[in-house]
Amino acid sequence: MSAAPVLERPAVEPHLDPALAAREDVRPTGRRLGPGRRRRLAWLLGPSVLLGLWTVSSATGLLDPRILSEPWTVVATAGELIADGRLQENLAISAQRAGLGLFFGIVVGAVLALLAGLSRVGEALIDGPVQIKRAIPGLALIPLLILWFGIDETMKVLTITLGVFVPIYLQTHAGLRGIDLRYVELAQTVGLSRAAFIRKVVLPGALPGFFLGLRFAVTGAWVSLVVVEQINATSGIGYMMELARTYGQTNIIVLGLAVYGILGLLSDGAVRFLERKALSWQRTLAG
């Protein structure tokens, strides 16, 4: 017999056994169709590639700095703005607006979803108006909100809240309605009180939907923030960028974009982290 290629199948996945991992003649125990196990910091790969492309095209002159500032200019600008305190100051104000809007939006969206999901009357009263609100672009309400509340913080936080509560409501409500009726029957047979039913069955069952809504909501909060800060503001990252536009300071505009990007990425990561912790009972491809 000639030496046939060795196709030994190890008893464990090679990555779990250092001795096997070193050998080239050993292949994994089977073809898996799922994406495989999680790798830490893997989410950084995509953004890093983008950053690399930007750096390379700036360095080779492919990208005119008047169109898009070089990464290092943006870093230097960040240094200057941090040194004179403008960046932190504006960032704090922006974060406060987004945070408040997000908080109120989550509370309103979740409470409305529970009311609509748990009672027919609630559903009849709430679902229609929310669907109508959903059909109106959130930013189209800004003129009215300015008329009612002026251009102070209330208007800004309210605009964000209005953008946030809709996805929270929609996804949480969908999650609630998707709860398997078999669990409702079970709750009845073990004699759960209404409060215990909500705590043990409804809330955990709706949690995956809530987190999906939360991810939309966080993204939406930043979008609304940008708009309210560029239309009517005298502070905040958006205002800083708007001011830079009038002076043609591309570097500050790009810095603002980068800050929004980082904030978005961080907040999405935070939501995902919370989601993994809260939904650890789920077995999904996300892992």
């Binding site: 078999r182 669990y183 079970l186 043990k200 069955v201 955990p204 949690l207 939904l279 009972w281 789920q282």
Partner: peptide
């Protein structure tokens, strides 16, 4: 029941 009907989140 025929299915064990355990709450998957508990």
């Amino acid at each position: 029941f025929q299915d064990s009907r355990l709450l998957p989140w508990d």
